[in-house]
């Protein structure tokens, strides 16, 4: 999977989860500060990322931005 494909899929999850417009999500989007995700929202996102990419993430992962999410997915897909 290319970075762009991963990003597109992650974006799709974020758009759906937080009712955003596509153009509101970029790689630098800060999940906590830009889209007001609280810790329970983040679990929801991680849960869906796990299912959609068929990977496992640690719950405690330090994820701040869309880029962080994409990186985690990339690392897990490569593992």
């Amino acid at each position: 999977m290319t970075d762009t494909e991963i990003f597109d899929k992650v974006k799709e999850i974020l758009v759906d989860q937080f009712d955003l417009e596509e153009n509101e999500v970029s790689l630098t989007t800060d999940l906590t500060n830009d889209i007001d995700a609280d810790s329970l929202d983040l679990f929801e996102v991680l849960n869906r990322v796990e299912d959609d990419f068929d990977i496992k993430l640690a719950v405690a992962e330090d994820i701040k931005t869309t880029q962080d999410l994409v990186d985690k997915v990339k690392a897990q897909l490569a593992a």
Partner: peptide, 13 residues
């Protein structure tokens, strides 16, 4: 667990 998604993640683990 305080939410459905965390419960699901825990089940998967």
């Amino acid at each position: 667990v305080p939410s459905v998604s965390l419960a699901q993640m825990m089940e998967k683990k």
